[in-house]
C-alpha cells in the first residue's frame, strides 16, 4: 500500500510538471505574452520595461525555472488589470467556490446514489422511468440554459428565490440546486447501470440465499461493489464540478473562481487565468491521487496486491 502510494505520488508530480510546462508553453505560443498586456498608448520603452518586470526578456528555460520557482513559493504573478497578486485574488474568491461546489457535490452525489440504486432495484418501475427521463434530459439540456430558465421561473415569475448575491441561505438554493442537477444525470446513470450489474451477480444471489433482508442485500452487499465503478470516474466527476461551477457562477454572478476566471478572460488578464488553471490542474491531479487511494481501500484486491 505504501509503495503504491509513493509510486502514484511520483507520477502525480511528473504529471504536474508536464501540465505546468504545457500551460507555460501555451501562454507563450503566440510569441510574447506582453503583447497581450500592452495598451495602444504604451511606448516601446514601456514594453521593454514590462518585459523586464515580468521576466519575459530571459530565455525560455530560465523563464520556466522562475515560473516554477514562483509557483512553489505560492507566487502566481500579478493581475495586469488590478495589479494585485493572483494568489491573493484566488484566496479571496476560493471560499465562495468551495462553499458552492462542496454543497452541490454532497447533495448531488447523495441524490444520485439514492436514485440510481432505487432505479436499479425497482427496474422498469415508474421511479426507474423518472430517473431515466431525468438522466436523458439532464444530459441534453445545457446547464447555463437550465440555470437561466430556473431564474425565470423562481425569481422572475414566482418571486420566491433570489437570482443574485451570496448573503443568505436563500441565495444558495438556485446556484447549488443547478450545480447539483448538473452533476446528477451522469452519476445517476452510472450508479444505476453498475448496480444492475452487481444485482445480477452470484454473490448477491448468495446473500439472498442466506436469508438476509433486502435492505442488507442492497445497501451492504450490493452498494459497496456498485460504487467501485463510479469511483473510477470520480476524476471526471471533479472535472464536471469545475466545468459546472465556471458556468453557473457566471449565470448567478457568484463571486468565486469560476466567475473570476471568465471575467479575467474577457479582460485578457492572463496571469489570473493562468493561475486559476494551474491551481485547478494541481487539484485535478490531487483528486485523481485520492481516488486511486480510495479505490485501493474499497477494493481489497488492490489494497493487498501492492503492500
Amino acid at each position: 500500500m505504501v509503495r503504491f502510494i509513493i509510486i502514484r505520488l511520483l507520477q502525480t508530480i511528473v504529471a504536474l510538471l508536464g501540465i505546468s510546462l504545457l500551460i507555460f508553453l501555451l501562454v507563450r505560443a503566440t510569441g510574447n505574452p506582453i503583447d497581450l498586456m500592452r495598451n495602444p498608448s504604451s511606448s516601446e520603452a514601456d514594453i521593454i520595461n514590462l518585459k523586464a518586470q515580468f521576466g519575459f526578456d530571459k530565455p525560455y528555460p530560465e523563464q520556466y525555472w522562475l515560473f516554477m520557482k514562483g509557483i512553489v513559493h505560492g507566487d502566481l504573478g500579478k493581475s495586469i488589470l488590478r495589479g494585485k497578486p493572483v494568489t491573493d485574488m484566488i484566496l479571496q474568491a476560493a471560499p465562495n467556490s468551495i462553499r458552492l461546489g462542496l454543497t452541490a457535490f454532497i447533495i448531488g452525489m447523495v441524490t444520485a446514489t439514492l436514485l440510481g440504486v432505487l432505479a436499479a432495484v425497482r427496474r422498469d418501475s415508474w421511479l426507474d422511468n423518472v430517473v431515466k427521463f431525468l438522466a436523458v434530459l439532464g444530459q441534453a439540456l445545457p446547464g447555463f440554459w437550465l440555470a437561466i430558465m430556473s431564474i425565470w421561473v423562481f425569481s422572475v415569475y414566482w418571486h420566491i428565490l433570489p437570482a443574485f448575491g451570496t448573503s443568505g441561505p436563500a441565495n444558495y438554493v438556485l446556484p447549488v440546486g443547478c450545480l447539483a442537477f448538473f452533476l446528477l444525470p451522469g452519476m445517476m446513470r452510472l450508479v444505476r447501470s453498475s448496480m444492475l450489474d452487481v444485482l445480477d451477480s452470484e454473490y448477491i444471489k448468495l446473500a439472498r440465499i442466506k436469508g438476509l433482508p433486502e435492505r442488507v442485500v442492497i445497501w451492504k452487499h450490493a452498494l459497496r461493489n456498485a460504487l467501485i465503478a463510479p469511483l473510477t470516474v470520480a476524476g471526471m466527476l471533479f472535472a464536471n464540478i469545475i466545468t459546472g461551477a465556471v458556468i453557473l457562477e457566471n449565470v448567478f454572478a457568484w463571486p468565486g473562481l469560476g466567475k473570476m476566471s471568465v471575467d479575467s478572460m474577457i479582460a485578457r488578464d492572463f496571469p489570473v487565468v493562468q493561475g486559476i488553471t494551474l491551481l485547478v490542474a494541481a487539484l485535478v491531479l490531487m483528486v485523481n491521487l485520492l481516488v486511486d487511494i480510495t479505490y485501493a481501500y474499497v477494493d481489497p484486491q488492490i489494497r493487498y496486491q501492492n503492500t
Binding site: 451477480s201 452470484e202 454473490y203 433482508p213 452487499h221 484486491q301
Partner: peptide, 24 residues
C-alpha cells in the same frame, strides 16, 4: 420465506469464484 432461507434450507452455487462478495 426469508426465515427459511439460510436457516432451514440453504444452497451452494456453482462458481466459487463469483459467489463470494469480493469486498467483505
Amino acid at each position: 420465506m426469508r426465515a427459511y432461507r439460510g436457516k432451514m434450507i440453504s444452497m451452494i452455487l456453482q462458481d466459487p469464484m463469483t459467489s463470494l462478495n469480493p469486498v467483505y
